[in-house]
Design a protein around this nucleic acid. Structure first.
Length: 305
DNA sequence: CGCGTTTGACCTGCGC
DNA sequence: GCGCAGGTCAAACGCG
C-alpha cells in the first residue's frame, strides 16, 4: 500500500533506467538477466513469479519496474516512513525477512563491536573458544547490547544470472563473511560485504536449487565509492553477463558530476571489454530469454516437480 | 604479513 | 515460550 510519503521520496521517483535502452551498453546482454524486487512475494529460489522480470521487459515497463525496485521499506504492503517496529504486521517474504541491523555507512561500529570486547586470550584454541565464548560473550552481549532500533531497509535488488560461475565479478571487492545452508536447497548461500571502508553494501550469492545454472545475486545498499577497478590480473571472466554499468548507474544515481560519471563509465567499459573477450573465449552458454522465461514459468507451479 | 575464506557459535525475528 | 531459519560474528586457517 503506497503512502504519500513514497511519493515524496526522491528514491521512489527515481528511475534507475533513465536513459537506458538496449543499445546503451552493447557489451551487456540484457536478455540474460532477470531482476526481481524485494517486494516480490516469494524469493526466486522458491518459485519465480511475475515479479521477476526479464531485464529487457523492465526497460520497457519502467513503471512496474522502478516501483518495486526501489521499495525501500520491504513488503509493498508496508507503511513507508519512519522506522516502525510493527513489521510483524506485514507479511514478509523469506527474502524480505532479512534484518538490517548493521549500517556501516552511518555507524561504522557494528553492534557487537560496540560491546565491550571479549576478553578471550588471542591464543585461545577452538575448544576453549567454544566454552569461553558461550559464557563471556553471552554476558557481555546481553548486558550491554542496546536495543537496536529497526534499521530502515536499504535498497535491495537481485539478479538472476545464468552462469556456471558461483561468484559473479562485478568490479567491486567483496569479503565473504558468512555462509549458510539454505533450507530446501542443496546450495549454500554466501554473504559478502564490500571491503571498501565505510561502504556497507552487502550481497548474497546463492544458486537456485530449481535451476542450478542460475545464480541469484542480491545486492543490499549503495556503494559510496566507485568501482575499484583492481582487476588483479585475473578472471574477470566471472563477470559474464553482469551489468556493471547498470550497477554503476544504480549505485550512483545522483552522479550528475560528469567528471565522475565519465571516470566511472570508463572503468565499467573497461570491465566489459574484458568481460566480452572472456565471454567469447569461454563460450559460456548463457541461456536466452526463452530459457529463463521457461524457468520463470515452470516455477510458478504450473509444472509438476 | 596482509587479506580473504572457512566454519561453528551466536543473535534475532517469526510462526506455531 | 519454543523451535526454526536467516543473518552475523570472529578465530582459525590458507594463500600469494
Amino acid at each position: 500500500m503506497s503512502s504519500s510519503n513514497e511519493k515524496n521520496d526522491p528514491l521512489y521517483n527515481y528511475d534507475p533506467f533513465q536513459g537506458f535502452d538496449s543499445s546503451t551498453f552493447p557489451f551487456f546482454d540484457y536478455n540474460n538477466l532477470l531482476v526481481y524486487s524485494q517486494a516480490a512475494p516469494t524469493p526466486p529460489f522458491q518459485g519465480l513469479d511475475s515479479s521477476y522480470m526479464n531485464f529487457t521487459d523492465c526497460l520497457h515497463d519502467q513503471n512496474s519496474f522502478s516501483r518495486p525496485f526501489f521499495d525501500m521499506s520491504g513488503s509493498s504492503s508496508d507503511v513507508v516512513g519512519p522506522v516502525h517496529d510493527n513489521a510483524s504486521n506485514s507479511k514478509q517474504t523469506v527474502d524480505d525477512s532479512v534484518r538490517i541491523n548493521i549500517d556501516d555507512t552511518e555507524n561504522p561500529s557494528t553492534p557487537n563491536s560496540s560491546v565491550s570486547s571479549p576478553s578471550n586470550g588471542g591464543t585461545a584454541v577452538e575448544d576453549s573458544r567454544k566454552t569461553n565464548k558461550g559464557s563471556e560473550q553471552e554476558k557481555s552481549k546481553k548486558v550491554n547490547k542496546p536495543k537496536k532500533e529497526r534499521q530502515q531497509r536499504k535498497p535491495r535488488f537481485a539478479f538472476l544470472t545464468k552462469t556456471e560461475i558461483d561468484v559473479l565479478e562485478d568490479g567491486y571487492r567483496w569479503r565473504k563473511y558468512g555462509q549458510k545452508a539454505v533450507k530446501n536447497s542443496p546450495y549454500p548461500r554466501s554473504y559478502y560485504r564490500c571491503t571498501t571502508q565505510k561502504c556497507g553494501v552487502k550481497k548474497r550469492v546463492e544458486r537456485s536449487f530449481q535451476d542450478p545454472s542460475v545464480v541469484i545475486t542480491t545486492y543490499e545498499g549503495c556503494h559510496n565509492h566507485h568501482i575499484p577497478i583492481t582487476l588483479r590480473g585475473n578472471n574477470i571472466t566471472s563477470s559474464a553477463g553482469f551489468p556493471h554499468e547498470f550497477l554503476a548507474h544504480y549505485f550512483f544515481p545522483s552522479t550528475s558530476n560528469h567528471q565522475e560519471e565519465n571516470s566511472m563509465q570508463h572503468q565499467s567499459v573497461a570491465l566489459h571489454q574484458h568481460q566480452h573477450q572472456h565471454q567469447q573465449q569461454q563460450e559460456l552458454q548463457v541461456s536466452d530469454y526463452g530459457l529463463l522465461h521457461n524457468l520463470v514459468s515452470s516455477s510458478t507451479g504450473k509444472q509438476a516437480p
